[in-house]
Computed example of a mutant assay.
Amino acid sequence: MLIEGEMVNRIRIGLSGWGDHDDLYEEGTKAADKLKAYTRHFPIIEMDNSFYAIPAPERMEKWSEQTPDDFGFIVKAYQGMTGHSRGKNPYANAKEMFEFFKQSVNVLMEQNKLKTVLFQYPPWFDCQRKHVEILKRTREWMAGFPVALEFRNQSWFTAEYKDKTLQFMQEEGWIHSIADEPEAGIGSVPVVLEPTQEYATMIRLHGRNASGWHSSGESNWREVRYLYRYSTEELKEWMENLFTLLQKTKECWLIFNNNSGGDAANNAKQLMELLGQDTGPVPIRQMEWE
């Protein structure tokens, strides 16, 4: 059994996106310079802008150039690939869409900076045969690329299907993306501390704002759903969860997505401090007020 100190070196903590965490950056930091500045604080990031539009390979190359050689990208799958799209799809068909996406993320993979492609499915994507077939097809089309899978429907983890779901993910080569989110009915999932691949497990902390979780019909739903600040006790709970996971998996990638109120970066630094990790520099504007 590994001691906790050895495990700490196998934990990578980061945030979702790099544009909305102004507390990290010195005042006046330009948007084009934020990713480079971000890398001074965290070793990994979830690229969320790829969900809204597939980045051109040239743009991926520019982003990669702003990061150190050992930096890691988790790239969120384009919304058309997970059934989130509304309106006309800009691609001729699904296969073409996947091909464009793979050309994009291949830039990062060739440079050993791609940790995984994250497929997060919507709440209506429940546990039934046709959706299992979609997952099989998706894995086939993403052959050669590491992929992570996150559900938003409880049916995948009911007593009847939980073990089958985890076995399926293991056999098909899906990294389990464990979600920490409020227990808010069928459109949310419980914390399931089970890795499905030995080389890595992913964790995404969305906050526990139960009252705001189902506000997607509102124009400001993003400002409500992820409005949550984890307490020190909750972070210590996750520290122990990480040590539990690392008994069965080589690395853990933990992403804070609770940024509606700007809490993600602060919570991430808190957890890093609890783990004894380097928390990076303090922005000049923060130092001036201390």
Rank of each mutant, 00 (worst) to 15 (best):
P68S: 14
E150L: 03
G5H: 08
K130A: 12
Q154K: 11
E58R: 08
K136Y: 14
Q128F: 14
S16E: 08
Q111R: 13
E65R: 10
G262H: 09
E6G: 13
M47I: 01
D70E: 14
S231E: 01
T244S: 04
P57E: 12
E172W: 12
R59P: 01
T29A: 10
L271D: 03
D23W: 05
M81H: 02
V107T: 06
K36T: 07
V117G: 01
Q154Y: 14
I13F: 04
R137C: 14
D48E: 03
T196R: 09
A56H: 15
E58C: 05
H131D: 09
S16I: 06
Q79A: 10
N209Q: 03
S188C: 02
A31W: 01
T196M: 09
K30Y: 05
P122L: 10
C252V: 06
Q197A: 04
P283E: 13
Q197I: 05
M7Q: 08
F119N: 03
A37S: 05
L227K: 05
Y121E: 02
G144N: 15
C252I: 06
E46W: 02
F98E: 10
V191T: 09
Q128N: 10
D20G: 15
E251F: 05
V8R: 06
N259E: 09
K113D: 00
G276F: 01
F51T: 00
F168E: 00
Y78S: 00
A53E: 06
R222S: 07
S50K: 04
S155N: 09
E27M: 11
E26R: 08
R229Y: 10
F157L: 11
E58A: 08
L118Y: 00
D278R: 14
I178V: 09
D70K: 11
L135Y: 00
I175M: 12
G173C: 13
P55T: 00
Y230I: 03
A265G: 01
L227C: 04
S188T: 09
E150I: 04
A92F: 10
H21R: 07
L242R: 11
P43Q: 13
M239E: 02
A94W: 11
A179G: 12
